[in-house]
């Protein structure tokens, strides 16, 4: 190996070592443990596919947690994109105080999720929260946001939407990259604002939209913090806010379960689900994502 090559390996070795120890090893270990009965205290005992069999055929809570997670993702991802894009469009048109509004809308993204969750618990308190008090004043129905199983997932979605700052910044950058002359050409052709948005803006920001959709889908399938803080590891009323990662955590670390092998199997099932969903998204992107280079 040349000196330059050696220097290169030395330069990247801290990352490689870190990756091998803290990512690759746990990743592979968890696959092994998913085929074992393991509580950390006793040596892992190989049980083959027993964990997966139990997970898929006998566990009442795993399908429920998976369904909750999908419902959350289906609610959250589109609303997240719409909200972030909507705010980005407004900021893109803003004439004054652009910097202030940009900062203001981004701020919740860097607020700790725990603090945000607690804030929303109070805002959405069914008995005397600000939201329900306002709804009552307007003689509108006041949902039991945090205690009715029907409303728990919308509640978490609502609190999660607040932190759309990162996506908003990406959309804003994409919007500012749309060539002005395309809008002018469309105007000359007699298009209205909605037509320009649909035919010019959306195709030209579709790359960013795809990126945001993919990342937020993965994040939403891994949802944990908001649900854990608002409803604890038990998943709220009737397990309606029990998400897959919360269930994994509970099986591994809480309530004396210590079922590390089983939790590892849950983690691998979730990994496969996320992989599948992401592959579908990539396949679907061929039909709607436009790249300036001409690739679809």
């Amino acid at each position: 190996m040349s000196d330059e090559g050696k220097a290169g390996w030395i330069a990247v070795s801290p990352w490689i070592i870190g990756f091998l120890i803290f990512t690759a090893y746990p990743f592979i270990s968890s696959l092994y443990f998913s085929f074992t009965k393991y509580d950390v205290l006793q040596p892992a005992q190989w049980i083959g596919l027993e964990n997966y069999d139990r997970l898929l055929t006998r566990d009442r809570l795993f399908p429920l947690a998976l369904r909750n997670t999908f419902v959350y993702a289906l609610l959250y991802v589109p609303l997240h994109i719409i909200t972030a894009l909507g705010v980005a469009l407004l900021l893109n048109e803003a004439r004054q105080m652009k910097g202030f509004f940009r900062t203001a809308f981004y701020l919740p993204s860097i607020t700790p999720a725990v603090a945000t969750a607690y804030l929303w618990i109070w805002l959405l308190n069914p008995n005397n929260g600000l939201v329900n008090n306002t709804l009552r004043t307007l003689h509108l129905p006041a949902p039991a946001w945090t205690t009715d199983p029907f409303w728990t997932k919308p509640t978490i979605v609502l609190s999660s939407l607040w932190t759309m700052g990162a996506a908003m910044i990406m959309f804003l950058a994409a919007l500012q990259g749309v060539p002005r002359d395309l809008y002018e050409a469309a105007k000359l052709d007699g298009s209205n604002a909605a037509q320009r948005f649909r035919s010019v803006t959306l195709p030209l920001i579709s790359g960013v939209t795809f990126f945001v959709a993919t990342i937020s889908t993965i994040a939403s399938l891994n949802v944990f913090t908001q649900g854990y803080v608002m409803f604890d590891q038990d998943g709220g009323p009737e397990n309606s806010a029990l998400f897959v990662v919360m269930y994994l955590y509970k099986r591994a670390f809480a309530s004396g379960y210590f079922q590390m092998g089983y939790a590892a199997a849950i983690a691998w099932m979730l990994f496969l689900v996320i992989l599948l969903v992401t592959l579908v998204q990539f396949w679907g992107s061929k039909h709607w994502v436009y790249y300036e280079s001409g690739e679809r």
């Binding site: 308190n125 069914p126 008995n127 039991a144 945090t146 205690t147 009715d148």
Partner: peptide
Amino acid sequence: FGLYEAFATT
């Protein structure tokens, strides 16, 4: 129980 829970959160 729903009313109890809503009240208890306050």
